[in-house]
Design a protein around this nucleic acid. Structure first.
Lengths: 265, 265
DNA sequence: GGTAGTTGTTCAGTGGATTGAACAAGCGTT
DNA sequence: AACGCTTGTTCAATCCACTGAACAACTACC
């Protein structure tokens, strides 16, 4: 009966937005992005977000006119304008451009799958991907999200935060997402890793998100304090993974991180 | 003095939106996307969009809370959430996934630079790019836009439209964008090409956007009448471009287009 | 230092967006 | 076919988001 019973109201009860229509419109976009099929009807949205139908209708018309959503018969889905806007965001990040250039020239990395990611709330989000050999074709795409505890980049970016922030995000009794038998289970495990990562300067993910796959990650030093935290990672097959190779990759990752962190590297 | 004098009002004078706040919020996003530096202040936005400062402030607060924009001191820029939303849109397009798979296996295309694009108002927008050989590294990225008259995909998608739509978009006295000496100049030229493209089933772009580079494109048949028009293109260096190669590429492009057009190809 | 130009924030009044009920149109069932 | 239960649209009354002016905080330039 597809009873998706998640009446998460658009407004957080106490938080009256200075422009409710905008907040609700954003909630509509979120709902469409999270809907498994990517398509919802007016009534679906009105019900899920707790907005009167007539108001929802107005919102949808305005969103459609702005091409932020598309109507297809009775179904609404995300609009193409969002691809433009997302691309506009990425094109402004000089780091992404330099990332590609560096990967091509790096002796070891140029043959591997390298990604650059950014912390985004309690997730990481992939900004760009360089694929040296399509041998290990990844399923993740640009823009995809991943829990912090399940990825090397996530852990290395977490390690950059202050302890009290980590504590706030991962209280001792928190339930961590699990994707493989080797996924971290407890906040304690995660925090132990964080201190280890701080010492050694890089993070390792050992089949914690995908069996047979390992990941190394380093942080990009945040230049000038402003701007969000970036991280870099290499992905490799566990089967063909050696200590010396790892050392080489970490070395090159750190070089890349350094040149990204210092504008005129 | 950076006198960007473009007071393009957010509302189109006569068009009263059913949810003005949303329309204006979308205008804010547009303005940020088009701003050369990607950063604008509250006053910049208020001035450019013709919105009172106090209202603009409200909009920006709501947008920031939704993470659709970010504040950095006094400057506002696009937010990360837009990358997520754009990615969510793309992930729903099965065509993109199949596009990659096909390109890898195609005998000729697998070595070339292939792209899939979509018509979007009076532009095309690139949805995905497959790069066989990084020999001809393109400057265009996913999400980038391009005028219809300047690209092979643009022309081939234009040729899919009805004549009266083309006439409306390109009246005889229209001024076409020019990027190289070989760019089309007049609507007449464009329309002549459109009829030619309809006959031969594919479009050629001969150094019209970049000197030294040629492009071939075919349309993807729109299955079931709904859904936007997609197009495929291959890019090659004019220097190494031969007739037979072109024939092969067009053949494979058409195969790909066919399998994309028919879900269970 | 003083002035004139910014900037972004505050606040009470008002005009228009939002709303709920009533509407019409579409489906599936009995 | 008539029913029950959907769907999305219409419309007048109300409430609240928007507004404009006044505010405070900076910067720049004599």
């Amino acid at each position: 009966m597809a009873d998706s019973r998640t009446p998460r109201s658009a407004e957080g009860l106490g938080s009256s937005s200075p422009a409710p229509a905008v907040t609700r419109a954003a909630a509509v976009l979120d709902a469409l992005a999270e809907a498994p099929s990517g398509r919802l009807t007016l009534s679906d949205l009105a019900r899920e977000l707790g907005i009167p139908k007539s108001s929802t209708s107005n919102l949808l018309m305005a969103l459609e006119e702005a091409r932020l959503i598309t109507r297809e018969g009775a179904d609404f889905s995300l609009g193409r304008k969002l691809v433009e806007l997302g691309a506009a965001y990425l094109s402004r990040l000089d780091e992404v451009q330099e990332f590609y250039k560096f990967c091509e020239q790096a002796p070891t990395l140029s043959g591997e799958t390298v990604r650059i990611a950014m912390i985004d709330g309690d997730h990481i989000i992939y900004l760009a991907r360089y694929e040296g050999h399509p041998a290990v074709r990844l399923t993740s795409n640009i823009g995809d999200k991943m829990p912090l505890s399940l990825s090397a980049v996530g852990k290395v970016l977490l390690a950059q935060l202050h302890d009290h922030d980590i504590e706030a995000m991962f209280p001792d009794d928190v339930e961590l997402p699990v994707m493989t038998p080797k996924s971290l289970r407890s906040a304690a495990e995660l925090k132990a890793q964080v201190t280890a990562i701080r010492k050694q300067g890089y993070a390792l993910e050992d089949e914690e998100s995908t069996l047979g796959v390992v990941c190394l990650a380093v942080p990009v030093p945040t230049h000038g304090a402003h701007g969000p935290s970036l991280g870099l990672s290499v992905t490799a097959l566990k089967a063909t993974f050696s200590e010396e190779q790892a050392a080489l990759m970490v070395k090159e990752l750190k070089e890349l991180a350094h040149s990204l962190g210092n504008p005129m590297g």
